[in-house]
Simulated assay, not measured.
Amino acid sequence: MALVAAEQIFITIIITTVVALSSSFSSATPTTACQFNFRDGNKLYNYTLSSPIPNFPHGILSEDGFYKVSVNQTTLWFQLCDGMIFNHDPPKCADCWDCGGPTRCGMECSALVANKIGGYHVCATIGSDPNIDIDVIDKKNPHIGVIVKMSSGGVKYNCSLAVSVLCDLNGVQAPQTLERSGDCNYATELKHPSGCAMIVNVHGSGWGWFGTLLIILLCLFAVYLLAGVVYRYFFLKIRGIEVIPNLDFWISLPRRTQSMCSSLVRKFKGPPSEGHRSTYSAVNF
């Protein structure tokens, strides 16, 4: 009974591993901050927003320390892939406690918005550096760019900012529009060469997920077999070839495989035709 329980445990481990692997393989893979990989067929799109590129040693980061856009009575400050730094033109608004306080307003978050209410600009933190999520804008056209989403949980609202980084090899176009949805959710866009992906052809390269899965299953089977041998040898005192667990099953496996293959062949070939008769004739005694 103990051996049967041990075998059930190992089979459960194998099934759990298969399910976990199958659920973890996806076409989009976030890596480190502001790095994102998206696979479309045989092409792998690599986005590295914070990596240096020609003419832009800081990548997507604004050299001023922040991006700024003002629409009507609302002003937005944000920085991608890092916190904001203000060497000039700092935010001047009330209620900035979640993002640095009155003396360092904007210096301890990655996105801040100010709405003019009753003649005063009231601040709300809508993004913090650790809470960043990246995805492609259009999965059917991944070359368009990526969307960077950041969020921040405040006392009154759960705020967020979605920045669409559009691929543009010709230069940078600062954000000019600002959209608001709900109480504290904002969206804007900018054009930048960092939004362009490096495309790698991955056809036929490496083992792939199936090869990796096969190796893991073989390793788990080896562990199961070794544990069964150890248990039967030291605890059940079995010697010789019988020490292998489920020996009868492994011996009968070739015969079962042959029988299964023969059954499949007969199934696909169908019943013998009328023109194909046995060369043997009936004998009357």
Rank of each mutant, 00 (worst) to 15 (best):
M1R: 06
L3D: 11
V4L: 13
T12D: 11
I14H: 06
T16P: 05
A20V: 12
L21F: 13
L21V: 12
S24T: 09
S27C: 09
A28T: 09
A28R: 08
P30D: 08
N37R: 13
L44V: 12
N46G: 06
N46K: 14
T48P: 03
S50Q: 14
S50N: 14
S51C: 05
F56P: 00
G59T: 07
S62E: 04
E63N: 14
G65I: 02
F66R: 01
S70T: 15
Q73F: 06
G83T: 14
I85F: 07
F86W: 05
D89E: 13
D89F: 08
D89A: 10
P90I: 04
P90F: 03
D98W: 04
D98C: 07
G100K: 00
R104G: 08
C105Q: 01
G106F: 00
M107A: 11
E108S: 13
A114H: 01
N115G: 09
C123P: 01
S128P: 03
N131P: 03
N131W: 05
V148F: 00
S164N: 13
L166E: 03
E179L: 15
S181Y: 09
S181W: 05
D183Q: 11
C184E: 00
H192M: 03
G204L: 08
W209N: 13
F210Y: 10
G211M: 09
I215A: 10
I215G: 07
L218K: 10
C219F: 15
L220W: 10
F221P: 03
Y224I: 07
G228Q: 03
V230C: 14
Y231V: 06
F234C: 11
F235C: 11
L236D: 15
K237N: 13
E242V: 05
E242A: 12
V243T: 11
I244Y: 06
P245V: 03
L247A: 08
D248Y: 07
W250E: 10
I251P: 04
I251H: 08
S252H: 12
P254M: 08
R256H: 09
R266Q: 13
G270T: 07
P271V: 10
P271I: 10
R277V: 15
T279V: 09
Y280L: 12
S281Y: 11
N284K: 11
